[in-house]
């Protein structure tokens, strides 16, 4: 069953002069990990940011349809605030707020109206899900910026989980991390797909092969090929996909 269905998505930058995504169609399966791969500038991050309308933060024009549970998120379907509560995001650089661990995780739920005791349990639960609780439970009041990059990234995952999303978008979440932290985040992704639908952008093909169930290959703003990860890596249908996954370019 698909959670998100993208139909004929086009995205333009710079007053329409740069055509960043061209007629992309893709289905994202529920409780699976979908990886978006491709060389830099191929549009995979733009595609990801179209799924929670984060492209709108910059001046970007979007055309086409993106259905979340059958409702078009662009055309009167849903309020952008509600959409982003359902579709969370974790960024390339760990970006915790300059506040305590507790306040970082509590930030979203607090603004959405969670208080006191309930808030404590939301914070604890989110940190546990993000596999960070054991490392920080006695230092919740400490400034988040004092922790390591890997811990900060898991904190950002906890912060996203705290508003109880259904989908989580990961934009190259490990590109700023060392191999050990990367392995921990990948373990975490596999654990999270039980409860969440996950879309991950990665420039690292081994990572896509290790964690994802489905893979979509992007090139120059077009979605070239998508399918089961094993099929994309072992029997790609398109010559360009084959060249990319075998490392002939990119």
């Amino acid at each position: 069953m698909s959670k998100i269905e993208v139909c004929g998505l086009n995205v333009y930058y710079e007053n329409g002069t740069v055509h960043a995504l061209k007629e992309v169609n893709l289905e994202i399966e529920t409780n699976k990990i979908t990886a978006l791969i491709g060389p830099s500038g191929c549009g995979k991050t733009t595609f990801l940011r179209a799924l929670n309308r984060m492209n709108e933060v910059n001046d970007v024009m979007t055309k086409g349809k993106v259905f979340l549970d059958g409702k078009d998120i662009y055309n009167g379907g849903e309020d952008v605030i509600q959409l982003r509560k359902k579709v969370g995001m974790v960024f390339q650089q760990p970006n915790p707020f300059p506040m305590s661990i507790y306040d970082n995780v509590a930030y979203g739920p607090r603004i959405h109206g969670t208080r006191n005791k309930k808030l404590d349990s939301v914070v604890e639960e989110s940190l546990k899900k993000a596999a960070l609780w054991d490392e920080v439970h006695d230092r919740l009041e400490k400034n988040a910026l004092k922790f390591s990059g890997g811990q900060q990234q898991r904190l950002c995952i906890a912060r996203a989980l705290a508003v109880n999303p259904e989908v989580i978008l990961f934009d190259e979440p490990c590109s700023a991390l060392d191999p050990i932290s990367t392995a921990r985040v990948e373990d975490l992704l596999r654990a999270l797909k039980k409860d969440y639908t996950i879309v991950i952008v990665t420039h690292n093909m081994q990572q896509a092969a290790r964690v994802s169930d489905f893979t979509a290959f992007f090139l120059l703003g077009e979605m070239i090929e998508c399918g089961r990860t094993t099929q994309i890596f072992e029997k790609p249908k398109d010559k360009r996909t084959e060249d990319y996954v075998t490392g002939r370019f990119g």
């Binding site: 984060m54 982003r84 650089q93 970006n95 707020f97 930030y107 996203a160």
Partner: peptide, 22 residues
Amino acid sequence: PHAYREASLALGVSKWRTIRSV
């Protein structure tokens, strides 16, 4: 940093609230 704003917006927080809180 712009990243703070994006992090807040991505949590479903409005722009004005993001400005005030972050």
